[in-house]
């Protein structure tokens, strides 16, 4: 690291920092859905990665569809497919909640196992439908390339788009949870399920909707993911551990904590990646997070609960 001049080192730090920001956006997108499902409902959704991949495949289909039939609108297909991805993953999520999860609310560890079975089935379905090979989408021209900021620092446009999407989704989730009727009901149920039901909240439907929205956000994450990487049937499993750690590290019930932990984990990883090999950076980051969690199990931002 001493072979670089000071300005070069600064540029490297800035570029790595920006790469970290893109990773951060992806983490935030993935973790937000999980934070809703895990933080608000206490359900461990091991199939979260597969819901994400569904969003990615929806984007892939839309990219082919627009490329083949609506080339005029191709520049805008990404935004349309993000919305489609939300509804596709959300609908699947609602179905899974109805078919499986609602029977298992009293057995959190069993939910973990059942949703893992769902993830296996979804993986096989993806493999049968889309093939075992990874697929990539065609990125519209305007998203290619990068914006030069200084001589040494360049900012990729697709990364900026992912960041913008992460910001929008975070805002949306915040509005939904803290400013909408649904959000009020979810929080009421979390505080006291029996009383919430007694004042007329349809707890079953709210649970289902919560699960659906969480999965829908995962779908949007998958859609954003196609902008920076390709999609394979088992890609979801690669991210599930990171995502869970982000949520747990942040403090399960806190949205702000989720964002803060996504930021610290992604920055730590991308800065270490420059000095160490990629796998060692990952190992060190994960070890650090696990160690901190062992010392402080409630995570960064613990929500104070009166017990």
């Amino acid at each position: 690291m001493f072979a670089y001049s000071l300005s070069e080192l600064g540029a490297i730090l800035a570029m790595q920092g920006f790469a970290g920001l893109i990773l951060f956006s992806v983490f935030v997108l993935m973790a937000l859905g999980l934070a809703i499902i895990f933080g608000q409902m206490g359900v461990i959704n091991m199939a979260h990665g597969e819901f994400m991949i569904l969003g990615a495949y929806v984007t892939y289909l839309m990219s082919n569809l627009f490329g083949g039939f609506l080339p005029a609108l191709f520049g805008a297909y990404f935004f349309i497919s993000t919305v489609f991805a939300f509804f596709a993953s959300g609908a699947l999520g609602i179905f899974v909640e109805w078919a499986l999860i609602r029977h298992l609310y009293r057995r959190p560890l069993d939910t973990l196992l059942a949703t893992w079975a769902v993830s296996l089935i979804l993986q096989q379905v993806y493999r049968s439908v889309f093939g075992a090979r990874e697929v990539g989408v065609t990125i519209p021209d305007w998203m290619m390339g990068s914006l030069p900021v200084t001589d040494l620092i360049e900012v990729p446009i697709n990364g900026l788009c992912v960041m913008a999407l992460a910001l929008a989704v975070s805002l949306g989730v915040w509005l939904l949870l803290f400013r909408s009727t649904w959000g009020r009901q979810v929080r009421a149920i979390k505080q006291n399920r029996v009383m919430a039901a007694a004042v007329g909240i349809n707890t079953e439907w709210t649970d289902r909707l919560t699960f659906g929205i969480g999965c829908g956000v995962a779908g949007m994450a998958g859609s954003a993911f196609t902008m920076i990487g390709s999609t394979g049937p088992t890609a979801g499993q690669l991210y599930i551990v990171d995502t869970f750690l982000v949520v747990v590290f942040g403090g399960a019930a806190s949205l702000l904590g989720t964002v803060a932990s996504a930021l610290s984990i992604s920055q730590a990883q991308s800065i270490m990646e420059f000095f160490l090999s990629g796998s060692m950076a990952k190992v060190l980051t994960l070890l650090l997070v696990v160690t901190i969690l062992m010392l402080r199990p409630q995570g960064l931002f613990a929500v104070r609960l009166r017990k």
Partner: peptide, 10 residues
């Protein structure tokens, strides 16, 4: 109820 709220590690 406790199990549902069991997300908190405390």
């Amino acid at each position: 109820l406790q199990a549902r709220g069991g997300a908190s590690p405390e």
